[in-house]
């Protein structure tokens, strides 16, 4: 087994291939995205897995970027809030958050949107209670929860049409 203290990391972020050299294995995926790739849409709330502000998609599944060592993402595909829409066109979940006032300060919003987009794919939109339960990994200190549920419900309808 080959242990190293500096690594070459190849991964695809928002459809673009990256090859990053000299990576310290202590760097998290969250810090890599923000500090090295300058994709600051993904937020650092708690850095302990507790708030969901750092939610991104890893090979299509929603995960907390603060709980992942970047080096472990070799060969994998990451989608961040910057890559969710299609060019300038907003993703239906982003549009629904605007339409339904799903935020105040907006700090938790990128994580909420990434989580909601995945939740709709997972099919956990059967009822408001189900949406709330499966959105529970994303905290909102402004407490926009009722509007967030409305936005997710609306987006789910639009995506499935």
């Amino acid at each position: 087994m080959n242990f190293h203290d500096r690594h070459l990391l190849r991964l695809r972020v928002n459809g673009e291939d990256h090859s990053l050299s000299d990576l310290d294995p202590r760097v998290t995926l969250l810090d890599l995205l923000r500090e090295r790739l300058h994709l600051t849409g993904t937020k650092k709330g708690c850095n302990f897995g507790e708030c969901g502000a750092c939610t991104v998609h890893l090979d299509g599944r929603r995960v907390n970027a603060c709980m992942i060592l970047a080096v472990s993402c070799e060969g994998r595909e990451v989608t961040t809030i910057e890559g969710l829409g299609n060019g300038d066109a907003l993703h239906p979940v982003q549009q629904a958050f605007i339409d339904h006032d799903g935020f105040q300060c907006g700090f938790c919003t990128p994580g909420q949107v990434m989580s909601a987009a995945a939740l709709i794919e997972e099919g956990h939109t059967g009822s408001d209670a189900e949406i709330r339960e499966w959105m529970s990994g994303n905290l909102c200190r402004c407490s926009a929860y009722p509007q967030i549920v409305e936005a997710v419900r609306a987006a789910a309808g639009r995506v499935s049409q």
Binding site: G49, T55, R62, V63, I68, G137
Partner: peptide, 9 residues
């Protein structure tokens, strides 16, 4: 247990 995101990891 935990959250949907954490359970994916």
């Amino acid at each position: 247990a935990a959250s949907p995101q954490l359970r994916n990891l």
